[in-house]
């Protein structure tokens, strides 16, 4: 297995088509109270691409997201979005957590419309704007329901739609399906695959689930344990949209074995 060195050279080499790059994380470093958590991480996200950061729990994946979203400022390095420096600036990309974080006092349509309201659009117009998306996201008929009336899977769908309403070109998803049971989870994978086909969005995804990563991603970055650095980058060339059958295919299992080998060597 070849390890890709994590210097600028490799990312330049991989980013041949500069125009299509949405988001670039350049050599970020971050330590908390003297402990190095992120050691020189560089990665990029192309237009309409689904990229996963795969690593163990507590490997600093969420810190990377906090830096990209602007909630944290890296000690070194920068975040470039559409060619502009967005280091430490919030309000550009949307962020989704494992918890759905839907507001229990708002019905689904108002929850979903909240990002637009925050942007300053009035309640009525924002409702009108989100309404057509309920069909695409398979949430039709749930507009007037309250979050506690929905199943866990449906709540995550609503949270995903809310995330999409904030930023339609770059979404950061931090283990969004980690709290769901296995069956609901694979169902939501097929659903996500379908929905993403209809949208023009780039997704950066965090997970520790190898199968989830392979099924959903165009590319996977494998992260080392703390301090985090990218130790491998794998391109998943299984054609999209992928269906259920993909998960039992030979190619899928080859990827799985390959990744498992890398991770075994790590920890």
């Amino acid at each position: 297995m070849n390890f890709y060195p994590n210097d600028d050279k490799s990312s330049v080499k991989l980013n041949e088509d500069k125009n299509s790059i949405k988001l670039e994380v350049k050599n970020i470093k971050k330590s908390f109270e003297g402990i190095l958590v992120i050691e020189n991480v560089s990665l990029y996200l192309k237009n309409k691409e689904f990229v996963t950061i795969l690593g163990l729990s507590g490997s600093g994946k969420s810190t990377i997201f906090n830096i990209i979203s602007g909630l944290m400022i890296p000690d070194e390095g920068e975040i470039i979005i559409d060619g502009e420096d967005y280091t430490g600036k919030t309000g550009r990309v949307s962020y989704m957590y494992q918890k759905d974080l839907l507001l229990p006092w708002k019905n689904i349509i108002d929850n979903v419309a909240l990002p637009l309201v925050i942007k300053g659009i009035n309640k009525k117009d924002s409702r009108k704007e989100v309404e057509p998306y309920f069909e695409i996201f398979g949430l039709k008929g749930y507009e007037k329901k309250y979050p506690h009336q929905l199943s866990g899977g449906m709540r995550q769908r609503a949270a995903f739609l809310r995330t999409y309403m904030f930023s339609r070109d770059i979404m950061l998803l931090d283990e969004p399906f980690g709290g769901l049971d296995a069956i609901t989870r694979s169902r939501i994978h097929y659903w996500l695959m379908e929905v993403l086909e209809k949208l023009e969005t780039s997704v950066l995804f965090i997970t520790h689930d190898i199968e989830e990563a392979i099924f959903l991603s165009n590319r996977i970055y494998i992260l080392s344990d703390k301090p985090a650095k990218v130790i491998d980058e794998i391109i998943i060339d299984i054609p999209r949209p992928r269906t259920k059958d993909v998960t039992t295919s030979v190619r899928f299992n080859e990827f799985k074995k390959h990744i498992l080998n890398i991770m075994d060597r790590l920890y």
């Binding site: 919030t90 949307s94 957590y97 974080l101």
Partner: peptide, 11 residues
């Protein structure tokens, strides 16, 4: 986390 989410939206 909810407050962070709001912050990331620049609320």
């Amino acid at each position: 986390d909810l407050l962070n989410l709001m912050k990331s939206m620049k609320a």
